[in-house]
Design a protein around this nucleic acid. Structure first.
Length: 425
RNA sequence: GUGACCGUAGCUCAGCUCGGUUAGAGCGCCGCGUUGUGGUCGCGGAGGUCGGGGGUUCGAGUCCCCUCGGUCACCCCA
């Protein structure tokens, strides 16, 4: 009987790589906390309509990338492909906009699922940390979000991050623009690449995503979204950029940055790393002032947020040769030199752990040589040898793993001696 | 969904071009050198359906076909 294969595109993170993973996740969450974003925990699956309506029927995510299944009651459920729709849904469910002072600020971390062909930096199950600020349209909030994203990546150890930004204007700006863009694409109908031809009727804006050879020329002539953004939204975006530039963020304005989720309005942005191969985005986000209404809420609740890819950031750090070192597994290691002393050893281990010293112990009746090898591999800075000789004197041998020096310590003073030793070392 | 490349030990790979007795290396793991002392060194050991199936052949890890899996890229995004 064979061990079942892991599910395609669903990675395991074992030590030592898991250490880097958690270091990155912690760094992201620490940055969120600096901005006053509180942890929110939401379900890993939702009614399918949360994403269909939130993310948008026309998006690739909803059309072909969702893990959708029927539960035993026949309800259509979907594993979350992204975080924002679920967070907003949870806030609306709780009536937050009506009973709390706005904006509210949330941070989350967890697994997300998209049915795509895996490749470098793209898995079917992947991990993100995200933040969302709900209930304000203040451009300072946009700037804060972008700034925190940049800071989060910096704290994770990534440098040479490029930041691309754009404004999509408001929902009301879209119809006129879509119409003019459609008309423009019509003129090239016979020359459009297949991908654009397929989706232009669902959402002509997606034509800007295309990198097909002929598109560059067609898009160069296309009506520009920027020309259809209303004056207020333009001023809003200008203020966001002004704030960020004053803080020295190296932002690049990219009028082609459209992003594949329908809920975005106004500010959108993407963080990229050169270390990643084809999947070069380590994070991205934007404003979604119409999302609450898309989800059926009776009032407008503006919001903005980002998501940063944990797996991708780990990859980028690895590519830059900056993988964080694996921390020592324990501080102390108890070696049992006599099988009759397992009871005494177990008691010593418990005592040390109770005193706050992380401790491991040799098992399986291995020789002392083997146990010290294990102590070395565990990264212990102290080994405690418990043998017949020591037991007879009610003592323990304390060995410094760096220098090899050792001395005998009375059994009653071991915990104290270990703590002293660790403080000094 | 489309394309290219790749599947030999736990990991990284050699062997395949030009088929030939027991399929190798490095790393890792376990043991011994030290009947109670790690890292270095030396010696030894465990570990392989050569992804799977079929075919050609006296003989297949090596050649042919099918199949499964993986990787990278397109697409899209974290």
């Amino acid at each position: 009987m064979d061990v079942p294969d892991p599910v395609k595109g669903v990675p395991d993170w074992l030590p030592p790589e898991s250490a880097a993973f958690h270091a990155v996740e912690r760094a992201f969450l620490a940055a969120a906390q600096l901005g006053g974003y509180e942890r929110i925990r939401i379900p890993v699956f939702e009614h399918t309509e949360v994403f269909a309506r939130g993310v948008g029927e026309a998006t690739d995510i909803v059309q072909k990338e969702m893990y959708t299944f029927a539960d035993r009651g026949g309800r259509s459920l979907t594993l979350r492909p992204e975080g924002t729709a679920g967070v907003v849904r949870a806030a609306l469910t709780a009536g937050v906009p009506r009973q709390q002072a706005l904006p509210v600020k949330y941070a989350y971390a967890g697994e997300f699922f998209r049915y795509e062909r895996p490749q470098a930096g793209r898995q079917r199950a992947f991990s993100q940390v995200g933040v969302e600020a709900l209930g304000s349209q203040d451009p300072m909030l946009d700037a804060e979000i972008v700034w925190l994203g940049y800071e989060a990546l910096r704290r994770a150890g990534l440098d040479h991050i490029t930041l691309r930004m754009n404004t999509l204007g408001d929902r009301e700006d879209r119809p006129a623009y879509r119409e003019r863009l459609s008309a423009h694409l019509d003129r090239f109908a016979d020359r459009l690449p297949a991908d654009v031809a397929d989706r232009r009727h669902l959402n002509p804006l997606r034509a800007f995503d295309s990198k097909a050879p002929g598109m560059e020329a067609i898009l160069a002539e296309a009506p520009r979204l920027a020309d259809h953004v209303n004056a207020e939204a333009k001023a809003h975006y200008a203020e966001v950029c002004r704030l960020l530039e004053a803080e020295g963020l190296p932002l690049t304005h990219d009028p082609m940055l459209v992003r594949g989720l329908d809920y975005y309005t106004r500010t959108t942005f993407e963080f990229e790393s050169a270390e990643l191969g084809a999947q070069n985005a380590v994070g991205g986000g934007g404003r979604y002032d119409g999302l609450a209404e898309d989800l059926g809420y009776s009032e407008r609740v503006p919001g903005i947020g980002w998501a940063l890819g944990v797996d991708r950031t780990v990859l980028a750090l690895r590519g830059a040769g900056k993988t964080p070192p694996r921390p020592p597994r324990v501080q102390a290691f108890v070696a049992v030199a006599d099988a009759a002393l397992t009871g005494a050893a177990f008691a010593l281990v418990a005592e040390l752990r109770r005193a706050g010293v992380s401790t491991d112990v040799g098992v399986d009746g291995r020789g002392l040589r083997s146990q010290l090898k294990a102590a070395d591999r565990a990264g212990a800075s102290v080994a405690l040898v418990l043998g017949a000789d020591e037991a007879a004197r009610e003592a323990v041998t304390l060995r410094d793993m760096a220098s090899g020096e050792q001395r005998e310590v009375a059994r009653g003073e071991v915990a104290e001696a270990v703590i002293d030793h660790l403080d000094v070392a």
